[in-house]
């Protein structure tokens, strides 16, 4: 399994905004260990539980979306690490199931030498109808770890923005640099 929770970058506006998509597939093993509560009432027949994309991995998808936005703003010279999830509020009535698409829209709130903060909205799109419903509000904070205050040293190479992310960047569909 590859640790990449976005599939496409639709839009990138330098230092301002990045929009990414993630298709949820039943072929992803992780879904089969995580289920939505069985729908129905006490009177109805028990329903089999339905596989669901874990919210923690949806947050990771937003972190990758926003992390690329932050990394791109510094021309990928900084090692951008997710430092804090300031807020992650999900609508549990909107269930991220196989066959649906997640859209992460991340916006830069603040950026400086020490790090960045972002706010974002995650939506669930039904490809059958095109309808998009809000799934979550997610606010994140990133640290540029080479300028952290603890004095720790990290490897010289940029181990954050590996080839799998750079591949996504090279294929951005709408780029405003």
């Amino acid at each position: 399994m590859r640790w990449i929770w976005i599939d496409r970058i639709l839009e990138l506006k330098r230092g301002a905004k990045l929009v990414a998509l993630k298709n949820i597939s039943a072929a992803e093993d992780v879904l089969h260990d995580h289920f939505a509560p069985a729908p129905g009432s006490a009177e109805s027949a028990p329903q089999p539980p339905r596989p669901l994309m874990p919210h923690s991995l949806i947050i990771e998808g937003m972190a990758q979306t926003a992390g690329i936005l932050v990394g791109h703003a510094g021309d990928f010279k900084e090692k951008v690490i997710l430092a804090k999830i300031g807020k992650a509020v999900f609508d549990v009535a909107v269930q991220p199931r196989p066959g649906f698409t997640i859209r992460h829209s991340a916006e830069m709130v603040r950026y400086d030498a020490s790090g960045a903060s972002t706010s974002g909205v995650t939506e669930l799109i039904d490809p059958a109808t095109g309808e998009a419903r809000k799934l979550a509000d997610i606010e994140l904070m990133f640290s540029h770890i080479d300028s952290n205050r603890s004095g720790l040293k990290f490897p010289k190479e940029n181990f954050v923005f590996t080839e799998q992310f750079m591949h996504l960047i090279r294929n951005v569909e709408k780029l405003e640099d």
């Binding site: 430092a83 709130v109 903060s117 205050r149």
Partner: peptide, 22 residues
């Protein structure tokens, strides 16, 4: 924790519309 200090600086800047060097 140490990372919270960065967060606090960011939030103070936003709340008071000021610029702070960490």
């Amino acid at each position: 924790e140490s990372i919270d200090f960065l967060d606090i600086v960011f939030r103070l800047e936003k709340a008071f519309n000021i610029k702070i060097q960490q």
